[in-house]
């Protein structure tokens, strides 16, 4: 059996802010069709790594390649068209828009109406909006958000907003989905819902997923591979089983006295 192709490769990436070393020589790979989790204590550099991949930060050194393409020269607004979508740790929705319009706004990169086309709207612009509305409605169905379709997202509770943000990322139709703590601040039921949505997304939408999460039980359940960061360094990488046994991880992440997960 041949291994699936490498979708994302992080090669020796370092990131420094002044004297703070957020990332130090991190290398890792994500293959097509994997769910990879990044774990690590607070301040370990997990979100910094995600920000580097989505080109929000530029690595101080090292290289990040997506589908064989070096991301260093790609401007931030061209990342989404390449096929990378992300959600944010502190939800970054368009708070003044409805759920529907948040998702429609994410269809931006797939739409072609130009400046004049939008001023006139009738004909092509209208037809295009209708066509993309169908795609968006499918995602709304998929994530069970029909009841909040027209609700302004600024007024939604936290758990639903996280779901809308996942929907917005899916509306980009990405190849690689970066999820930054998709389950923070959720109760057990909401977490289980979100886990189900992530797995459904993975199975039905042919998306490779790289996620940061603190909930160990969940990470161990859904991830194919786990990468562990601590103080900007990668200290371990492997299957959930291997990570559970890794003494460095237990020491750095869980504290010495716990012993096992």
């Amino acid at each position: 059996m041949t291994q699936p192709e490498v979708l994302l490769s992080v090669e020796n990436v370092s990131l420094t802010f002044g004297r703070v070393q957020a990332l130090a020589h991190v290398s890792c790979e994500v293959r097509q069709g994997e769910i990879v989790a990044i774990i690590g204590p607070n301040g370990a550099g997990k979100t910094s790594l995600l920000n580097c991949i989505s080109n929000f930060y530029r690595p101080t050194s090292g290289r990040i390649r997506f589908a064989g393409r070096d991301l260093a020269r790609v401007p931030a607004s061209r990342i989404a068209p390449l096929g990378i979508a992300r959600t944010f740790q502190n939800i970054a929705l368009y708070t003044g828009l409805s759920t529907l319009d948040n998702l429609m706004a994410a269809r931006h990169i797939h739409m072609k109406s130009g400046f004049l086309g939008c001023l006139l709207y009738w004909g092509f612009g209208h037809r295009e909006d209708l066509a993309h509305r169908l795609v968006v409605e499918e995602i709304i169905d998929f994530l069970e958000m029909q009841h909040i379709r027209k609700a302004v997202v600024g007024a939604l509770p936290h758990g639903l907003r996280k779901r809308v943000e996942l929907g917005r990322a899916l509306a980009l139709e990405p190849r690689l989905l970066l999820l930054d703590e998709p389950m923070t601040g959720m109760n057990q039921e909401e977490k289980e819902d979100m886990a189900r949505f992530i797995l459904d997304t993975y199975e039905r939408r042919d998306v490779t997923i790289l996620l940061i999460e603190h909930d160990m039980g969940l990470v161990m359940d859904i991830a194919d591979r786990v990468i562990v960061l601590d103080f900007g360094k990668k200290i371990a990488e492997g299957t959930p089983e291997e990570i559970k046994q890794n003494p460095d991880v237990i020491k750095a992440y869980l504290g010495q006295e716990h012993g096992t997960l």
Partner: peptide
């Protein structure tokens, strides 16, 4: 208007 950083990463 609502979130310029997110907008940029979503391709605007």
């Amino acid at each position: 208007r609502d979130h310029d950083l997110a907008a940029e990463l979503l391709g605007v």
